[in-house]
Structure formats: structure tokens, C-alpha cells
């Protein structure tokens, strides 16, 4: 089976700072891959580059057989097949929950108002957000906002979801409801790439965990192996710091 996404020797720098320093990774359809590592190790940048929000400097990102990192390629047709959820939700504050969720299906996929509305309401209900449909994001809790952001991305029926530290901005008691949605997506067989600091969750949900350090994938493997018996001293050091901080 050919991978859905394949990163080949990806290089990305911001000015003098090299953020991605030769990333090689293949993501199969239906696979859930978690990126862990310290802040600044390149997790978020890798996700943003996948969605073409940042251009890479060299190497290739191949999505469904197409080199999407080709400079000058129109990004919009690719982006609509890739869902992304951000740390800070990024809901549109001037639009209601329902308008947030139906904007792209209507404008990009050309769905009718009725059709977009019905599909959105069905999914909002499924995630317990139906009574929030008419509210503005300001009136929703962080957990609700992030679930709305996930629904907004799912409405485009993406082939892969990129989740960029989606629980980092949430109060601890709200993390669970967002992670439940991710579990639900995994059950449905959604391909996911997630950057996270929730190690318990990474261990539970991932098929494979990648430890990033200074823009490189230093170590990868099944969660039990990577968390239980890491090979690399840097990985052990990172996990020890997480444990010391009481986060695992």
C-alpha cells in the first residue's frame, strides 16, 4: 500500500534557524501518528508545511501520489482535502458556530445553504454541540470551541486531519471532551497526524509515535516501545522531564 503522505528529506528554516532538518516519514491511510518533542522541535511546523501554510525549502511532501511541495502549485485544491485544527481554535469570531462550520462547504464545495446546514447540524448534534449552533464562539467554553473547530474541519470531508496541540490552550477539565472526539475519529479510521504534549493520550491513541528533536525525527516506533523502552538518550531525557513535571 502506498502511503497517504510521504515526507522525503524535508528541510525548512526560518531565517538562520533550521526548523525541519531532513524529515523522512510515511503516513499510511488510517494511521494515527503522534509527534512529540520539546517546544521548537518542529512538530507544529511539520503540520503547517503539510497543509501548505508554510512552504518547505527542500525535499518533498507527497500526498496521495502528488508532490504537493512543488513550488507554485495552487494550494487550495490540496488544502480542502487536508483538515487542520489549531492550538488556539481560530474560530471566526464574527460568525456563529453554524456559520463557522458551513462557510467552507458552501463557498469551496459549492453546497447549498440547506445541504450545508443539514450536514453541519447532524455532526454538531453528534458531538453534543447542537444547542450551540446559533451562538457566537465567545459564548462557548474552550472545549466547545475546539470541538466546533474539529467539526468545521471535518465538514470538508478531509482525507487526513492535522491536529496541532489542540488541547494545549484548554483548562484541564475540558481536555477530555476534546480527546473523546479524537478517539471517535480514530474509531472511524481517520488518518491523523497530531502534535501533542498529552503523553497518556499519545500512548493510548497512536499507532506510531515520533520523537522530534531539533527538526529531526530522532526516534519512532509503536507507543509502548517508545514510551516504555526508548533507545535514544535524548528521548529518555525528554520523557524523564515530562514525568518530573507530573505530566505522565
Amino acid at each position: 500500500m502506498t502511503p497517504l503522505i510521504e515526507y522525503r528529506d524535508v528541510l525548512k528554516s526560518f531565517g538562520d534557524k533550521v526548523v525541519l532538518d531532513g524529515i523522512d516519514l510515511a503516513v499510511d491511510r488510517g494511521e494515527v501518528i503522534t509527534l512529540i518533542g520539546a517546544s521548537g522541535s518542529g512538530k507544529s511546523t511539520l503540520l503547517r508545511c503539510t497543509n501548505l501554510l508554510e512552504p518547505i525549502d527542500d525535499g518533498e511532501i507527497v500526498f496521495d501520489g502528488v508532490d504537493i511541495s512543488e513550488p507554485g502549485l495552487p494550494p487550495d485544491p490540496i488544502r480542502r482535502r487536508i483538515g487542520m485544527v489549531f492550538q488556539s481554535f481560530n474560530l471566526f469570531p464574527h460568525k456563529t458556530v453554524l456559520e463557522n462550520v458551513t462557510l467552507a462547504p458552501r463557498k469551496v464545495l459549492g453546497r447549498s445553504k440547506r445541504e450545508a446546514h443539514d450536514q453541519a447540524m447532524a455532526m454538531l448534534s453528534r458531538f453534543g454541540l447542537a444547542d450551540k449552533a446559533g451562538d457566537y464562539p465567545d459564548r462557548c467554553s474552550g472545549g466547545q470551541q475546539q470541538r466546533v473547530a474539529i467539526v468545521r474541519a471535518l465538514q470538508m470531508e478531509p482525507e487526513v486531519m492535522l491536529l496541532d496541540e489542540i488541547t494545549s490552550a484548554l483548562d484541564p477539565e475540558l481536555v477530555g471532551e476534546v480527546l473523546d472526539v479524537v478517539r471517535e475519529l480514530k474509531r472511524e479510521g481517520m488518518t491523523m497526524l497530531l502534535a501533542t504534549h498529552e503523553m497518556h493520550f499519545a500512548r493510548e491513541i497512536s499507532d506510531r509515535v515520533c520523537f522530534l528533536d531539533a527538526g529531526r525525527i530522532l526516534e519512532q516506533g509503536p507507543p509502548d516501545q517508545l514510551f516504555g523502552a526508548p533507545h535514544e538518550p535524548r528521548t529518555r531525557q525528554f520523557l524523564q522531564r515530562v514525568i518530573d513535571a507530573g505530566r505522565m
Partner: peptide, 10 residues
């Protein structure tokens, strides 16, 4: 905000 909009394919 622009990133969120573009990521949806707008």
C-alpha cells in the same frame, strides 16, 4: 484567522 480560512480551502 487567515491561516484557519486558508486551511479550509478558501
Amino acid at each position: 484567522q487567515r491561516a484557519a480560512a486558508r486551511s479550509l480551502g478558501l
